[in-house]
Every structure is written in structure tokens, then in C-alpha cells.
Simulated assay, not measured.
Amino acid sequence: MPGSSRRLGEIAALVSAGTAVAGLLLGFFGLPTLVNSPTARTVTETVTATATVTVTAARATVATPAPPAAGQSSQPAPTSADRISLVNDLLPVAEEQGPYDHGSQKVNGQIHPTTLSSSCSITTWQLDRQYTTFTATLGAADSTGPGSKVLLYVELDGVRKIERNMAVGSTVPVTLDLRGVFRITLGSMSCNSYHPEDVGSWIDPAITKAP
């Protein structure tokens, strides 16, 4: 029927117009167009996430040694024993016959920088019972004649503890206990010799004071 065909055409036109308006509205608001149409496309939104990484630098800490407390020294602690040289550190209280020469001396082919040397001397040091040990090496200076000997001895409070007749070319180490000793005497006796070059020597004579 002609009237029915025209009415169907008008309805189809209205549906097409409505569909177009809906498409425009969906496109305007940024929504994907879902139209069951051969030309319709599905739009997929891709979201890219950006990660922000914060790097914290580690700070190295160097330990600083604490300063010494008040009244303390930064120097190493002293040794437990106090060694006193009879050549350089302690003055004698008595000298008989003559003083010792202080300094270097050649004994048994070797030069020793710290010696007491004399052909005739009796010298006494006061210890005041404060020391524990006496050490030295006995010898005759290399100037001593080939057939000569020099008597060297040690007395503690007037008591002779050791004596040696020393010839050129030899040495003897000596260690004595000084505990309770008030005075020490070192004698070098070649006083009656006609050869002044005959010289007795005390190599590195020293006393030790315990803590």
C-alpha cells in the first residue's frame, strides 16, 4: 500500500537521524562509539604509566678518633723500666785518681760511642736504693799494649762484687743486682803502669730503675 510504504520510510529516516545524533554526542564526550554498524570501530584507550624512581645517595661516615681526655697525652706510654746512663745521665758524687773520659772509644776493633775510659780512675755514683740492675761491657781500649792488662772492678756499698784483668782484644758483659744498694763504684786501675795508653773502658754502663 502506498501509504504504508511512505510511513515506513519516515520511520527509517527518524531512526537514522537518531543514530547520527547519538554518534555525535558520544564522540563529543570522548566515549567510544558502539554502533552496530559496518563502519563502526571499537576504540581502545591505552594508558601509559610513568614510574618515578627516587635515588637516595648513601652518605659515608668516617669515624674521627676522640681527642685525649684532659690530663692525658697522645704520645705512646713510656716503657716499664727507666734506663739511666752513667755516661750521660747521672753525675758522680766522688772521683779519685782522676775522672773518666766520656765519649767514644775503640774497643776490640769496634768504636763504641758511649763509654767511660781511663787508665786510672775510681768513680762513685749515688743510687739511693732506687735502682735494680747495673749493666755494662768491660774491655781494654785498642791503644793498650799487647802485653798489658787493666784491672776493672765494681764495688757496691764498698764491697767488691766483680773484677777482671782486661787485655786488648777482648770484652766481658756484666750484670749486677742493685736492689737495696746506696752507692756504686767503678774502678779502672792501671795507675802504676808506665804506659798511659793502657786504658780500661766501660762500654754503655747503665742502671735500671724499676717502676
Results as ranks from 00 to 15, higher is better:
residue 186 L to D: 02
residue 81 A to G: 11
residue 44 T to N: 14
residue 6 R to Q: 14
residue 203 I to W: 02
residue 62 V to I: 04
residue 37 S to D: 05
residue 52 T to H: 11
residue 122 I to W: 10
residue 211 P to N: 10
residue 86 L to H: 11
residue 148 S to G: 02
residue 136 A to N: 07
residue 179 R to F: 08
residue 129 R to Q: 11
residue 14 L to G: 08
residue 11 I to F: 13
residue 145 G to S: 10
residue 181 V to N: 01
residue 39 T to P: 07
residue 127 L to Y: 02
residue 137 T to K: 03
residue 24 L to H: 09
residue 85 S to M: 05
residue 68 P to F: 15
residue 103 G to P: 02
residue 211 P to M: 11
residue 133 T to L: 07
residue 127 L to P: 00
residue 144 T to K: 01
residue 194 Y to Q: 11
residue 168 V to K: 03
residue 162 I to P: 08
residue 14 L to Q: 12
residue 84 I to A: 00
residue 165 N to I: 05
residue 22 A to N: 07
residue 151 L to T: 00
residue 58 A to P: 06
residue 71 G to H: 09
residue 106 K to R: 14
residue 205 P to L: 02
residue 183 R to A: 02
residue 78 P to K: 01
residue 200 G to E: 00
residue 58 A to I: 08
residue 188 S to Q: 06
residue 101 D to Q: 10
residue 131 Y to Q: 04
residue 33 T to I: 08
residue 89 D to R: 09
residue 13 A to H: 07
residue 179 R to Y: 07
residue 87 V to Y: 00
residue 129 R to D: 05
residue 73 S to L: 05
residue 144 T to E: 00
residue 99 P to Q: 07
residue 188 S to D: 03
residue 135 T to N: 05
residue 151 L to K: 07
residue 151 L to Q: 06
residue 105 Q to E: 11
residue 121 S to T: 04
residue 82 D to G: 12
residue 72 Q to T: 14
residue 54 T to W: 14
residue 58 A to S: 12
residue 46 T to V: 06
residue 151 L to R: 09
residue 43 V to N: 10
residue 12 A to G: 13
residue 47 V to N: 12
residue 68 P to N: 04
residue 62 V to P: 03
residue 200 G to V: 08
residue 199 V to C: 10
residue 167 A to Y: 03
residue 11 I to L: 09
residue 164 R to N: 13
residue 140 A to Q: 01
residue 162 I to R: 04
residue 189 M to D: 14
residue 80 S to W: 09
residue 180 G to T: 01
residue 151 L to G: 06
residue 52 T to I: 11
residue 89 D to P: 00
residue 188 S to M: 11
residue 132 T to D: 05
residue 156 L to M: 09
residue 38 P to Y: 15
residue 120 C to M: 02
residue 46 T to M: 12
residue 136 A to S: 08
residue 153 Y to A: 15
residue 1 M to Y: 14
residue 110 Q to Y: 14
residue 206 A to N: 02
residue 81 A to L: 06
residue 44 T to I: 13
residue 20 A to L: 15
residue 198 D to I: 05
residue 45 E to H: 10
residue 105 Q to K: 13
residue 141 A to F: 04
residue 92 P to D: 00
residue 48 T to E: 07
residue 40 A to N: 12
residue 33 T to R: 04
residue 191 C to Y: 07
residue 96 E to R: 03
residue 54 T to Q: 13
residue 190 S to F: 03
residue 30 G to C: 10
residue 31 L to A: 09
residue 209 K to D: 02
residue 95 E to A: 11
residue 31 L to P: 01
residue 198 D to E: 10
residue 159 V to F: 11
residue 137 T to L: 03
residue 154 V to Q: 03
residue 58 A to Q: 13
residue 62 V to L: 06
residue 12 A to K: 15
residue 91 L to P: 07
residue 18 G to L: 10
residue 101 D to K: 07
residue 24 L to S: 07
residue 39 T to N: 13
residue 189 M to V: 08
residue 86 L to V: 01
residue 14 L to W: 11
residue 46 T to P: 06
residue 167 A to D: 12
residue 191 C to V: 01
residue 27 G to S: 15
residue 102 H to Y: 13
residue 183 R to Q: 02
residue 152 L to S: 00
residue 87 V to N: 01
